[in-house]
């Protein structure tokens, strides 16, 4: 952890996020337009909310004629996972000037969090900022392009882009799973547990994910970690 990641490192690390975001943001623009949301509001979603899954959810609920209060509440439930991610990222970043916290917090998306937190080097806020800025710009550029150009893209291309974010998550996670048997065990458990909870359909939207993260991470603190490649981590005493 002696090397500290700089803004320049952020540019390189941010490219896969851009690649993953643009197609998904295009899909968002296409969807919003098809439901009859204006261009201005579509862009405002991406500029102000900046949360992929919630934005898709909102458009789908708008199409169904669901009311505003329920959409906002569902957003809150869905984004409670970012509460956990911000806590985790904040702990890793260490003390930062308080005036910088609001800007750091705005861009805590699943993808920025995943890319930043799986780095071995020490994080700096500049590194995280660059990741967030690249994510934000590509999300908004993609939204704009999707609204105006979405119809030009053949449906087959649009469909195949749906895999992009999942491929990104897989590409981030699998090397970590290979490196540590504990990560392998916990990530698999989390995925299977989440699948199971979704099948049971017990909790409101978004809470399955939160429950899985909390329960499996906590269980993980009781699993000793034996890193294959010179790791030093141990389970908390």
């Amino acid at each position: 952890m002696s090397i500290k990641l700089t803004a320049k490192d952020g540019i390189k690390a941010g490219i896969p996020i851009v690649m993953g975001y643009i197609p998904v943001a295009i899909a968002f623009g296409v969807l919003a337009r098809s439901v009859g949301v204006s261009m201005l509001h579509t862009q405002l979603f991406s500029l102000m909310v900046f949360a992929g899954a919630s934005q898709f959810m909102a458009i789908n609920l708008i199409a169904l004629g669901v009311g505003m209060g329920q959409i906002v509440l569902t957003t809150l439930l869905m984004n409670f996972r970012h509460f956990l991610m911000s806590a985790s990222l904040s702990q890793r970043l260490g003390a930062q000037p308080r005036s910088r916290l609001p800007l750091l917090a705005f861009g805590v998306t699943d993808e920025v969090f995943s890319v930043a937190m799986t780095r071995k080097e020490a994080l700096s806020r500049h590194f995280v900022w660059v990741l967030q800025l690249m994510a934000y710009l590509s999300w908004n550029a993609g939204t704009f392009a999707g609204y105006w150009l979405g119809d030009i893209l053949p449906p087959m291309v649009q469909a195949s882009l749906g895999i992009a974010l999942y491929a990104l998550f897989v590409a981030i996670l699998l090397p970590e799973m290979r490196r540590s048997r504990q990560v392998l065990l916990l990530a698999l458990t989390a995925g299977l547990f989440h699948t199971l909870l979704n099948l049971v359909d017990l909790l409101p939207a978004g809470w399955n994910l939160v429950a899985v993260i909390v329960i499996v991470s906590w269980m993980g603190t009781y699993v000793p970690s034996h890193n294959k490649k010179g790791g030093h981590e141990d389970a908390a005493e």
Binding site: R81, L84, M85, A87, S88, Q91, R92, D110, F113, S114, M117, T118, I163, Y166, F169, V170, I172, L173, E176, M177, V183, L186, A187, L188, T189, A190, G191, L192, F193, H194, T195, N198, L209, V212, I213, V216, S217, W218, G220, T221, E233, A235, A236, E237
Partner: peptide, 23 residues
């Protein structure tokens, strides 16, 4: 220490749960 470890494990459990079953 245990809470710190808990926060450190969140990226991996979150990724596992983001991939499955969504993918």
């Amino acid at each position: 220490p245990r809470f710190k470890r808990f926060l450190e494990l969140i990226p991996f459990t979150a990724l596992g749960a983001l991939i499955l079953p969504g993918v």
